[in-house]
Design a protein around this nucleic acid. Structure first.
Lengths: 144, 144
DNA sequence: TGAAATAAGGACATGTTAGTCTTTATTTTT
DNA sequence: AAAAATAAAGACTAACATGTCCTTATTTCA
């Protein structure tokens, strides 16, 4: 579904968001520990998120990553996915045909459509805030 | 979503099925031509399908692949997927957590659940016959 | 029986994703 | 100003998915 990089990105972003509501910045080291992801690899994906303007980064001692809390309901999961994987996840033909479309559908097209649509809706309509509140309240988890 | 191998497998199986309703066997060469997939790679996936009992293979001149037409409504897409990719497609946590479950959900779990469920239902309930009829009638396509 | 047509099998090649390591840049603290 | 703590950047490596090639086995046909 999502690439590893994208999974880490979403997990990391949620963690950074949770810290940001407490007014704290989080270091790469802490993120990868709490999100259970490889440090150096996670660094790469965070750089992309930072360049895409989804997270803010600060170098130096007491630096790290954070997110403007007032933005957290505006940031959608789709933005993270787009920054890392692109939108092919929910646009691509399920059977891999380049030319699959409403006019020229693959045999699976019609049946698969609601799944893809649903996925797209969910990803475009759930905000970072939505995902973060459960983590803050302790009802959801980012690692074992 | 599905691996390339699995996409080819589904396309190939539908094509073989369409030929089988006409009482014909199809050679590997013809399959990969009509389904637009690399010959040798497709051979591998067909071997798996054959070993899984989803398709029948016959060696030698006038050999090839076919499917018992009376089985075509019993064979579900999920069987093909299972034979090639396994069932992780619709079982795996969307954020990659090994320990994600109803009791210990990731932040995306609840929202993602209907998508996964839907996908699983569709894949388990659409039969090979379902996918083949459109191809036979000319309303769906397996390549450009 | 020999040749041709096919699938099966295994070794190899290529490409992409995932991941590491090292150096550099920036900021804060002392 | 120097040291420490951090992120950024780029080169490198590893693992896996995708794909090719060659040889072998089986079947049919002339």
């Amino acid at each position: 579904m999502f690439s590893k990089a994208c999974e880490y990105a979403i997990r990391a972003t949620i963690f950074i968001a949770a810290r940001s509501v407490e007014g704290k910045r989080t270091s790469l080291k802490e993120i990868s520990r709490e999100v259970d992801s490889p440090v150096a690899f996670t660094a790469k994906t965070l750089q992309k998120l930072s360049k895409s303007g989804i997270i803010l980064s600060t170098k130096g001692a007491h630096g790290g990553f954070n997110i403007d809390p007032t933005q957290m309901s505006a940031i959608k999961v789709s933005q993270i996915v787009m920054a890392i994987d692109g939108d092919m996840v929910y646009k691509r033909c399920s059977l891999g045909l380049d030319s699959c479309s409403e006019d020229h559908p693959c045999p699976f097209h019609a049946r698969f459509k609601p799944v893809r649509q649903d996925l797209q809706n969910i990803v475009e309509n759930t905000s970072l805030l939505d995902l973060t509140s459960g983590l803050v309240s302790g009802s959801t988890f980012l690692k074992v």
